[in-house]
Simulated assay, not measured.
Amino acid sequence: MSDPSANEESESRVKPLTAVARRCLAVLVEKAKTTPDSYPLSLAGIITGCNQKSNRDPKMDVDEGDALRALDELREAGAVREIQGSGRVTKYRHAAYEWFDVDSPGAAIMTELLLRGPQTLGELRTRASRMHPFVDLSAVQAEVNALVEKDLVFAVTPPGRGQTFAHTLYTPAERQHIAAKVEKQAATAGSTVPATAPGSAANEGKIDKIQQRLDDVTARLEALEKKLADLES
């Protein structure tokens, strides 16, 4: 027989976060997977990751005060831990696996949703594969279904082609606008590019692959810049 108090504790562990806190958490998970040599991250590294131009939606201009408040929020929630790095520099690690109660594929999908907002299964497969390989859409669908059962993800649009999913860490005020925003984007896309346009899906796939390569190069450059900064200091 299950313990009701244990279920309540599991349900209450993950709570809505502010936009900057969500971005900081996603950056920590992303960098741990894509640039492990520069992880854990310093405050400066987190700020750089938050304000990164690629692989982010919306773009942000996070300053030191914003990041410190967000990290305090994440520490109180149990999603981030502060550690002492080399040279007595304070660094930060995520606790996303425990906090979300997910494994690597689930963390990759949650991270992409936190970094870019609502996405389709195809977009998630292309973008999250830089952190965890997904063999096909069925694998992504299975993982998304598991996240829905954990109340970490919800379907923004009805089932069917182009169904869009989002994370549940939005504040109540933000969540009210998610569906309307996605519907507006879908209507705009539908008015400019027919759904049956020849080669449209293939072109989107090529663009996503190019963007992924650019993201990887950007991440490597950021890691090199950080190493240079550490050497100079």
Rank of each mutant, 00 (worst) to 15 (best):
R69L: 15
D230Q: 05
Q185E: 15
I46P: 01
I83S: 14
A197N: 06
L124A: 10
T218I: 04
K226P: 00
L228K: 12
V14I: 09
D72F: 13
K15R: 15
V135C: 03
A219E: 02
S129D: 07
M1H: 14
A202T: 05
K59A: 09
G199F: 03
L74Q: 06
M60H: 11
C24T: 15
E8N: 15
T90A: 14
R81L: 05
T126Q: 14
E73Y: 06
A142G: 04
V153E: 00
A180R: 14
D57T: 15
E174M: 08
D215F: 01
Q52A: 14
E204L: 08
D101M: 12
A166Y: 01
K181S: 12
A173F: 07
N145Y: 06
L152M: 02
P198W: 00
V27A: 12
S2N: 05
V182Q: 06
P16F: 10
A26N: 09
I109Q: 07
A155Y: 01
M110S: 03
Y92N: 08
T111S: 11
S12L: 14
V102I: 12
S5Y: 14
A180Y: 06
A108N: 15
E225F: 04
G190V: 04
V27M: 14
T188H: 08
E98H: 12
A189D: 01
E225H: 05
R125V: 08
I83P: 00
Q84W: 03
S38E: 07
H132V: 06
K181D: 07
L114H: 12
L152I: 05
A32E: 13
P16E: 04
S2D: 04
L121V: 11
E183P: 00
A6G: 00
A180C: 01
D136C: 07
Q141E: 11
E11I: 15
A139Q: 01
F100R: 10
E183G: 00
R69W: 10
T168C: 02
P172G: 13
L124E: 03
A189W: 03
R116P: 00
T164E: 02
D61H: 13
L231I: 13
R22I: 05
H177D: 05
V144Y: 02
S10E: 12
P194T: 05
G87E: 10
V20G: 06
L147T: 04
F154P: 00
R23N: 09
I83T: 15
E143G: 01
G117N: 13
E64A: 10
N51E: 07
S233W: 07
H167F: 03
G205N: 04
I207R: 06
Y170D: 02
V80H: 08
R75E: 11
F154S: 04
E149M: 05
H167N: 07
P158I: 12
V29T: 10
A189E: 03
E98M: 08
E112I: 15
V27P: 08
K31M: 08
A202D: 04
E73S: 07
L121T: 13
L169E: 02
R116Y: 01
A187M: 13
K53A: 13
